[in-house]
Design a binder for these strands. Structure first.
Lengths: 105, 105
DNA sequence: CTATTTTTGGACAATAATTGTCAAAGCAAA
DNA sequence: TTTGCTTTGACAATTATTGTCCAAAAATAG
């Protein structure tokens, strides 16, 4: 297993922030958003916009694409959490991508 | 390859309807929705509610769970269509489900 | 302990997205 | 053309999301 994916997006960026000993206030200011909004993002109660993901990747010097994968996979996970066939739904969606790829070649 | 997943949800139910030689009007009436709404659903321009999926599965006598998988996988597919890392996002989401399963055991 | 700082949660209006509905227009067959 | 089917755009009503502020709770420092 390569990367930890057992933490939510919010938990992940909160850990980054805590590890760097920075208060919400500072990061929020950098991102030009309200402290409470960032608090909610860290608790997965609000969406993170493209801009915010961009900003976070800059602030913590992490790959933006990776962060986005984290964010979106998390979002989709929660979206399907209460569905009976979550995993199958994901697999079928993946098939659609693969079909698309095979076509476009 | 077991099932065709190269058609969208809309295309799928439209095909069902056409094959059964039924007009939108009739199905829409059965589902208690406007004809134009059903037309849009068939063109993937409107969401299908739980009720509608339920109704469609009844009308065409197909498994409701299957239809729902079709619908939701399609939705997620479109949601990620313009993302660079669509497939990886799906895989990470899947990992989250698997992690969840391993935990709950 | 008190004082200070950080974090949280609720409230709110503003904005955006979705829904249900209707009517007009397009299309195709007879 | 007339008829029936389908598509499209429009619209208000509803619902969801956003940005913002504030006060209270929680954590931390002194």
């Amino acid at each position: 297993m390569s990367k930890k994916n057992n933490t939510s997006f919010g938990e992940y960026i909160r850990k980054l922030r805590i590890d760097n000993k920075l208060p919400l206030r500072k990061i929020a200011a950098e991102l030009d958003i309200d402290t409470s909004t960032l608090s909610k993002i860290e608790k997965n109660e609000r969406n993170a916009s493209e801009q915010i993901i961009e900003g976070l990747s800059r602030i913590f010097d992490i790959d933006k694409a990776d962060l986005k994968v984290r964010y979106l996979s998390d979002k989709i996970f929660y979206q399907l959490l209460n569905e009976e066939d979550g995993i199958e739904i994901l697999k079928v969606a993946e098939q659609k991508f693969n079909y698309l790829k095979s076509k476009s070649k």
